[in-house]
Computed example of a mutant assay.
Amino acid sequence: MVHTIDVRRAGERFHTQAGWLDSWHSFSFSRHWDPKNTHFGLLLVSNDDIIAPGTGFETHPHRDMEIITWVLDGALVHQDSEGHNGIIYPGLAQRMSAGTGILHSEKNDSWTLTGEPEHGNPVRLVQMWTVPDAAGIAPGYEQLDINDQLSQGGWTTLASGMPKHANQRAIGIRQQHAALHVARLRPAETLEIATAPFTHLFVARGELTLEGAGLLGEGDAARITGAEGQRVIGGPEGAEVLMWEMNAAITVS
């Protein structure tokens, strides 16, 4: 596979602003459609959302999708038709398998952690969708606090369906060709990215330098084919970066 790096800048993303929601979409989403930007590898959605206090996504359906939510600021309350409930906060990995069909809601209830509604803050999160190995699986839900792992530095596997990560402490996804990793890079810290046919980097905070591409700032992404262990280096204030490692791609007929 030919090695390429396709950098997508934060300001180039599709943008939805709906009063209570400020959302930036890395790929075609909802009313935003570009047939040349529908996915990368197995990743279909990467939305960078800010949700105002006391608001959120009302109950809505999903089907045949693995959905990962990573909160950067605040707290998000999840409820679904399978009886799962959870408060998602920074450092807590969450996965919902939509499978044969599920209804869920996601609300900004950051104040529930303090008991002071008047002190509610916006929630910022990144929500990512990938296709499962097979359609029609049973719906499922999982969450896991990985703050201790993150504090040790380096890459932490947030979610994976790859057999090689079976013994790691991570949430599972029903996609054997994909894994999601996260790192909180300290200033000047250097890490190697995954060697994979398809690697997607998203800078959630701060800035970093990607070998072969230069500086990436907050909200920037890099779509890398044929990655061979290129390095990332944390900027002056460090960076928080999400990395998808993918050994296959969606086949478009």
Score class of each variant (00 low, 15 high):
M128Q: 11
A93W: 11
P117Y: 00
A75V: 04
N47G: 04
T69S: 15
P117V: 02
K36A: 14
E118L: 12
L44N: 11
T59I: 11
P61E: 13
D73A: 02
M65T: 13
S97Q: 12
W129L: 04
E116V: 06
R63E: 07
P163C: 03
H84C: 13
L103W: 13
G115Y: 04
I146Q: 14
P163M: 00
L144R: 14
A138Q: 14
P117F: 03
H62V: 10
S105P: 11
L76H: 05
W70Y: 15
S97F: 03
T157R: 05
L158R: 05
D48W: 03
D148E: 15
I102T: 04
F57S: 00
E106Y: 06
Q143C: 07
Q79F: 07
N85V: 10
A93T: 10
E116K: 12
G74I: 01
V131K: 13
T59Q: 10
D133C: 00
T59D: 10
I50M: 11
R63L: 11
K36M: 05
A98G: 08
M128S: 11
I102M: 09
P122E: 02
D73E: 15
K164A: 11
W70M: 12
V126F: 06
N47R: 05
G161H: 04
T112S: 15
Q79R: 15
D49C: 01
N121D: 04
H60R: 08
M65P: 09
L42D: 13
G83E: 09
A138G: 06
D64W: 13
I88D: 07
H165C: 00
L150S: 08
G136L: 01
D145Y: 03
D148P: 07
K107W: 10
D133M: 01
G161I: 02
G56K: 06
M96R: 09
S46H: 13
Q79S: 12
L92M: 08
V131F: 14
R63K: 13
V123R: 03
N85Y: 13
F40R: 01
M128L: 14
A134K: 14
T156D: 04
I68V: 15
P117H: 03
H62P: 12
N121S: 10
W129C: 03
M96G: 00
H39F: 14
S97D: 08
Y141D: 07
K164Q: 13
P117W: 05
Y89T: 06
G161L: 06
E66D: 10
A166G: 00
V123N: 04
G54I: 00
N167D: 15
M96W: 05
I137K: 13
K36R: 14
D80K: 08
G74T: 01
G140R: 09
A98W: 06
D64P: 14
A138W: 04
V126N: 09
H84P: 12
N121G: 06
I50S: 03
A134W: 05
R63T: 14
G161A: 01
N121W: 07
M128V: 02
T157C: 11
D48Q: 03
L144H: 12
H78I: 10
H84V: 08
G74P: 01
N37P: 10
N108F: 00
V126T: 06
P90K: 07
G86P: 09
T69H: 08
W111Q: 03
A135M: 08
P163S: 04
T112E: 12
E116D: 15
T100N: 03
E118P: 06
